[in-house]
């Protein structure tokens, strides 16, 4: 007996919930033959602004959770992804990847999560220092998360690229708002399901699907975002992000790389990109 498969409705991921866009809009994703794969939510500016409020509220408690805890949660994400890897491979293939590339991308993505999970309780030791000041003070510098980070995910390698950028941001205690790959958005939303079952508190990662044209300038100009990471090579977009970021002295990072599979995408310096140095002084003589 033939059976009609159940198709998934892809929605946004905001605050640990899966809402539709408040705008009610959508855009269609088709396979190479023009058949509909899914109708994605076309996120609006309002969806984005809601996500910022939620990410801001989630940030301090996420940052205050222990390094060990954050590392275990990242490892948990890897475990959940491992268990569902066949689905992610199939999804990438449906969006046009070859079977081999799809498999490699998913396996690398899992390993990358494990890689950054391991940094959780180590990067601070790598970047911090005690400063031998001349006066009678104990003086030390440590890293602190920059706060709420906007991520414009890479268009290609829509799973591996996404994970390579958000893992170092969240392991460092930031919360993120992601604009998923516009042309290959499925993996990002399926990844949200993984996040949602991995003990990642709601609001730590928020994922929108939609148009760069509509949303990137909103991301870049928002006064309550601390940092923006853009993955891509559109010089016009880089210019407007840089200009709008000056509204509130936002930190900008541009990753122009095409290939997120190389070993060069693994270092604690990716964590440092979304950190601030805080220096503390205290007298040592009474």
């Amino acid at each position: 007996m033939s059976r009609l498969a159940i198709q998934k409705t892809y929605k946004l991921y905001i605050g640990g919930k899966f809402p539709r866009s408040e705008s009610g809009r959508f855009y269609a994703i088709n396979d190479s033959k023009g058949n509909l794969i899914a109708n994605m939510c076309l996120a609006s500016r309002k969806d984005f602004r809601n996500a910022v409020v939620i990410a801001r509220n989630a940030q301090s408690s996420w940052a205050n959770s222990s390094a060990l805890n954050k590392g275990q949660i990242l490892y948990r994400i890897a475990e959940m992804l491992e268990g569902r890897k066949e689905q992610f491979i199939a999804e990438l293939i449906a969006q046009g990847e070859t079977a081999e590339n799809a498999k490699n991308e998913v396996l690398l993505a899992i390993d990358r999560l494990v890689y950054f999970a391991g940094w959780s309780d180590k990067y601070q030791q790598f970047f911090s220092c005690i400063n031998p000041v001349s006066s009678a003070h104990f003086n030390f510098s440590v890293l602190e998360p920059v706060g709420v980070v906007a991520v414009i995910a890479p268009e290609k390698q829509s799973l591996l690229g996404l994970i390579s950028v958000i893992a170092p941001a969240i392991v460092g205690g930031n919360t993120v708002i992601v604009l998923a790959s516009e042309s290959k958005p499925l993996s990002a939303i399926s990844f949200a399901e993984v996040l949602n079952s991995s003990d990642v508190p709601g609001g730590v990662v928020n994922i929108l699907t939609g148009k760069k044209e509509e949303l990137v300038n909103q991301f870049a100009s928002h006064m309550d975002l601390n940092s923006i990471i853009y993955c891509g090579t559109d010089e016009q977009l880089i210019l407007s992000i840089s200009e709008l970021a000056s509204n509130n002295v936002k930190r900008t990072t541009f990753y122009k790389k095409n290939d997120w599979s190389s070993d060069s995408c693994e270092s604690p310096y990716f964590i440092e990109k979304t950190q601030e140095v805080k220096t503390t002084w205290h007298p040592t003589e009474i």
Binding site: N131, V133, N139, N226, E276, V277, K278, T280, H282
Partner: peptide
């Protein structure tokens, strides 16, 4: 803040990183 002084204030040293967050 980028620099916090506890039980002191306005201390500077070449070995001590100085700078701000936010605006």
């Amino acid at each position: 803040a980028g620099v916090v002084w506890a039980n002191t204030f306005n201390k500077f040293d070449p070995t001590s990183p100085f700078g701000g967050t936010n605006e």
